[in-house]
Amino acid sequence: MVMNKKSVAVVMGGYSDEYVVSLKSGQLIYDSLDRNLYDVYKVVVLKDEWYFLGENDKKYEINRGDFSVTLDNGETLKFDVCFNIIHGTPGENGILQAYWDAIGQKYTGCNFYQSALTFNKKDTLAVLSKYGIPSAKSIYLRKGEDINVDEIVSELNLPLFVKPNQSGSSLGITKVKEKSELIAATEIAFKEDHEILIESFLDGMEVSVGVIDFKGETIVLGITEIVPTNEFFDYEAKYEGASEEITPARIDEETTKRVEEIAKRAYNSLGMSGFSRSEYILMNGIPYMLEMNTNPGFSPASILPQQARHYGISIMDLCGNEVEKALNK
C-alpha cells in the first residue's frame, strides 16, 4: 500500500475550438493513470469558468490564487501535479505555464517559453533553421499589411498554403491552387490569428513524429505516415478520421534514421520536455518541418497513443512518467 498518494489534476478544456478534443484526451489520461500511486481528479479550464469536477460531475470553482478547490466539507484540495492536456490556448501557448510558475504549481510538459515558442510556427522554424532543420520557403504577413498577390505567387509558386501563425488543429488553413483564391484564403487565416504564413507547397509524404523524454532519454515513439483523403491533413482528417494513418510509415531504413535524428535534434534544440508531435513532409528523403505540437491530441484515436502502443509503452507508463518528472522538478 502506497502511503500518501500524490494528487494529480488532469487539466483539460481550453479557450479554442480544440477544447472538444482536449476533453477526450483528458479522459484517456484520467482513465490511464495508476490509482495505486495517484489520486486523480478532473479540472476543466474554459474561457468563462475554471472548475473541478467532483462526484456526480458536480462543479466546484477553482480558486485562481493557488489553483485549489474548496470542497463541500470546507476542506481545501490542492494538487501535487497538474497534468496539462489542453490543446491550443491557454495550455499550449505558455499562458497557463507562466501562471502555474508564478503560484508555484507543478505541471507536466514543457515550460512557458517552449510552449509559447512552439505555438508560433514562424518563430519555431526560424530558431530550428539555425540547427540545420529545413522547412518550406515562406512569406509572413501581419493583418492590415498590403498583399501583393503577383509577388507572392512568383516567389512561392502555386499551389501554396496559407496558415494562421498560431492556431492548432489545422483550423484556418487553405491550399491555394489559383492566384484568384489567395486573398480569400488570407481572410480565412486572419480569422484565426493576426499573423499568417504563406508557404510553398512541399510535394511529398507527410509524416507525424512522436518524441518524448522517457526515463531520462529522448526517444522517438514512432513515425506515422498520413494519407489524407482530403487535400491535406485538416481538422476533419485529424479528428473525424478522414485520413489513413500508417504506423510505422512506409519509408526505408535510411530515411527512418534521418527523420528520427532530425526529430530528436528539434526536440533537444528547443529544450523540450514531455509529449511532442512534429509534422514533416519528406521530399527526396529529406524531412522538411511544418510544425511542432507540445500538447498533441491524446484521445484513443490520436497519433501519439497509437505510436506508444506500437513502440510498446503502455499509456499508463507514458502518463506516469510525465507525472513523476513533474514531481521531481
Rank of each mutant, 00 (worst) to 15 (best):
Y41R: 05
L282K: 07
G109A: 01
P90C: 10
I196G: 01
N230G: 11
K5H: 08
A126R: 13
P305A: 05
L160D: 00
L318V: 06
L141M: 10
Y280H: 08
E260C: 12
N268M: 10
F67W: 09
L197M: 15
V43W: 09
E199I: 06
Y38R: 00
Y107R: 01
R265Y: 08
F112C: 15
M12Y: 01
M12A: 01
L28Y: 03
E324W: 00
K5E: 02
E61D: 13
Y131C: 05
Y30T: 02
T247K: 04
L182E: 14
T256Y: 12
N295E: 04
M1R: 12
L46T: 15
L71H: 09
Y267S: 04
S269M: 03
E253Y: 09
K238W: 10
A185V: 07
R250Q: 14
E92T: 10
S276G: 02
T118V: 10
I139H: 11
E192Y: 12
I286T: 10
E245V: 06
F214H: 14
S129E: 11
S273P: 04
G297Q: 01
N268C: 09
V323N: 00
E206V: 05
V323C: 02
T108G: 00
L53G: 02
I86Y: 03
N148H: 11
N230S: 14
V149W: 10
